[in-house]
Design a protein around this nucleic acid. Structure first.
Lengths: 344, 344
DNA sequence: TTGTACGCGTTATCAC
DNA sequence: GTGATAACGCGTACAA
């Protein structure tokens, strides 16, 4: 079953004109008489003519579509970012093609090569939790494909970047716990090589330092898949609770880590915040309805998507190679709820 | 900044061959000598040649990409469906382009026209909560664009469809409440003209009838935007609770209705299930962590996406017009948790 | 004011 | 075994 569209040629034939006349009439060229224009336009409308974007792409060497790669769209943080991306892209007549890496490096490489050979005009990407080698992106970037990184960025590639102020988000969360009387604060983190992990850990350490609490590396647990696997979270927490001196609070450094941590605590009958306090990074709109309502660090996801897209379109539409790159850092916000407030 | 790719022409020039020879060598044609093939292939690999998909699309009149329109990807139900769609599409070499209607008819029409003029090979769509007129889809379908409906379908258009057994899902939820002693069971529903609303309401009514409970239309409240707006849910529930005889249970007939209903109950200090029981349709993976853990009707979202995509690809790749259409109905599953169990 | 010819990258068809 | 040419749909420089 094929879906045959009307072409300029059909219009030309029907009206006894040449294709170029039709083309010019449709584009409202000054060289065409009003009569012809009117004739052509009315006929085009009547048969519902639409220019073939593929032919245009071939000619203009641009597809007016941008690629987006995230680990998981089912994650609120990323779906909110995508809303931000769409809000800008749509207005500018760009199409958005989305792929998910599911936190797999292999899949990300595949996605990227797929996208590259799909003639996208530019790429927005937050790398997977497994990604430590950036050759696939470097190659593309070297070939001239505009790329903008967001959230999980790649320092080694010189281009625009948009992130949250992860350090200050973690700092605020940790400080809040300390000020509420917690002292043995664990950190449930994603893979240690990730930019977001390093930044969030550094904020956590600064907060401890500023309050004169010694940093204890036994309290920091890494989950290589960013909490995607319930198993890795379970192992990390089992470890944590097996220690002689148990933690009295946890800072969870990513959406999935936060919810899977809470899931673990529920399963094991550990009450929050009576037995342990919990603060986590999350963009879910259900955190206030959880048991207990969760204190969270929320990232400005929509805005991240907006700004990254604006930057990408700027790169795509730049007349000359861009040399000055920006790294926008947006503030995170701490929402204080019951999970981190010790009951008297 | 442009991103110039290598073409067959470049290879031909470099190797002193014609473009047709190069093309055939790359496609491993039998008419080309092994030596030439080897030469061409090695050179192509060395300079990282990739066929231009846009040129191929123009020639083959197919883009190998399918469009997906849903109301909101931030909704777990839809993001899970998209995972299912991707899982099939990717394997078959199809690209997925996603657009959101945000439950707006106007936006949906725009999305559809965007997609149509983007030369997608087929469309997967769950219509918006506002959509009552289907001309935009009928026109496209009449033009020969393969369409498969899922979730919120359009009966008037003859094509493949995939839905959940909404009636039996609602039936199970309602029966469960009745068997747990609830008698005045309200129904928080989406717009009355939607297929899912009608089916879910009919399941609800059957369950009441089977248990000998009279249907009371005052207990059925509709939210035109499917619960997207907190305000509409609030109005509906205010109405419900203002009645002389208050309900003792609520069946919420959509993801957003369920969570926004719970939000309302929290805000107003109404305890679940002590003051009122709650069962809702939801595909969120957080429902068991909510306060209280929610009894839910869960749809096989991933499977819906998979099957709809298989059907669409079948339509796209059919040699002759398809005349026999299937409507696959998948089972929903009831997960019983605390929100619907009366404490003694 | 309108028409002709070309090129975007590719492959199928025909010619040599 | 290889090369030239046309075609997909469009826009535009050039010709008339």
């Amino acid at each position: 079953m094929k879906f045959e569209a009307v072409t300029i040629k059909d219009i030309a034939k029907a009206l006894g004109l040449s294709t170029s006349t039709v083309s010019r009439a449709l584009r409202d060229s000054y060289e065409i008489s009003e009569d012809t224009k009117k004739l052509v336009k009315e006929y085009a409308t009547s048969i519902n003519y639409r220019p073939n974007p593929i032919a245009l792409s071939l000619k203009e060497k641009r597809s007016r579509s941008i690629g987006v790669i995230v680990c998981e769209i089912a994650n609120s943080f990323f779906s909110q970012i995508i809303n931000g991306i769409e809000s800008i892209a749509y207005d500018q007549g760009y199409n958005v093609t989305i792929s998910q890496s599911h936190e797999s490096f292999e899949r990300e490489v595949l996605d990227v090569s797929h996208m590259a050979s799909r003639s996208i005009d530019g790429l927005l990407i937050s790398v997977s939790a497994e990604t430590q080698n950036f050759d696939h992106l470097k190659k593309l970037h070297a070939q001239g494909l505009p790329i903008v990184f967001f959230d999980r960025i790649v320092h080694e590639i010189a281009t625009h970047k948009v992130t949250t102020n992860n350090a200050s988000g973690a700092y605020a969360a940790t400080t809040h716990l300390i000020e509420n009387g917690y002292r043995r604060i664990a950190n449930l983190a994603a893979a240690d090589y990730m930019t977001i992990t390093q930044e969030r850990l550094s904020g956590y350490r600064s907060a401890l330092a500023d309050k004169g609490i010694a940093y204890d590396e036994r309290l920091v647990k890494h989950c290589t898949h960013g909490g995607m696997l319930e198993q890795e979270v379970q192992t990390a927490l089992d470890d944590l609770f097996a220690q002689p001196q148990k933690p009295d609070a946890i800072v969870a450094s990513a959406d999935k880590l936060t919810t899977n941590c809470l899931r673990y605590l529920h399963k094991n009958g550990i009450t929050v915040p009576d037995d342990i306090a919990l603060v986590g990074f999350s963009n879910s709109d259900l955190t206030e309805l959880l048991s207990p309502p969760l204190t969270i660090v929320k990232q400005p996801a929509f805005e991240i998507g907006r700004q990254a897209t604006e930057m990408l379109l700027q790169l795509i539409e730049a007349k000359r190679p861009v040399k000055d790159f920006e790294h926008t850092v947006l503030p995170a916000e701490l929402f204080i709820r019951e999970s981190s407030i010790r009951k008297k």
